[in-house]
């Protein structure tokens, strides 16, 4: 039994401590915005924010997050910051198939939370663990820049 905070609510998981957070989120809590791409930390599709930091939920054992705070895209979408990123991504068509996007949005949040005025190089480094097979990244990088500009004061 592991207690943690998930998208603003206290939850208790009945799964074993050695289970991947990714599987617990998808199967026990039906949080399916967290995507399973590779299960080895190579793709970033399962990214969540754990106590303020971007992590790959496939590489997190449930037992390691007792008392922690987890934010997935389902929780993040309720924020003003999400609205700014959503608008920016849409404005440059930075989304194609969408599979990488929940992770990519949370990576974008972590970049801007640390540094509200990132350079292009800093943006690219910040999303370097999130693979996208459709866009070629340029539109995503542009979207994050736009969000930083248009969303001034939010981060």
């Amino acid at each position: 039994m592991v207690k943690f905070r998930l998208n603003g609510q206290e939850v208790v998981s009945q799964a074993q401590a050695n289970q991947r957070l990714l599987d617990v989120l998808r199967q026990e809590f039906r949080i399916t915005g967290v995507k399973c791409g590779c299960k080895e930390g190579e793709c970033g599709a399962c990214s969540v924010i754990l106590d303020g930091q971007l992590v790959n939920s496939c590489l997190v054992a449930l037992g390691s997050i007792e008392g922690s705070t987890v934010t997935t895209i389902e929780g993040y979408r309720e924020t003003e910051r999400f609205a700014a990123l959503d608008k920016a991504y849409a404005s440059v068509s930075a989304v194609q198939c969408g599979f990488c996007i929940p992770g990519m949005i949370l990576a974008s949040e972590c970049i801007l939370a640390k540094n509200p005025n990132p350079t292009e190089a800093e943006i690219r480094a910040g999303i370097s663990g999130n693979l996208c097979r459709c866009t070629g990244y340029n539109a995503i990088v542009q979207a994050i820049s736009i969000a930083a500009e248009e969303g001034k004061g939010l981060w």
């Binding site: 401590a17 997190v60 390691s64 007792e66």
Partner: peptide, 23 residues
């Protein structure tokens, strides 16, 4: 012993009992 988990969880051993050191 489990510190960061990023190597351990790639294997994802269902039988593993972890000693969580991350806190």
């Amino acid at each position: 012993p489990y510190a960061g988990g990023t190597d351990l969880m790639i294997k994802g051993d269902e039988k593993a009992g972890y000693l969580f050191l991350n806190n």
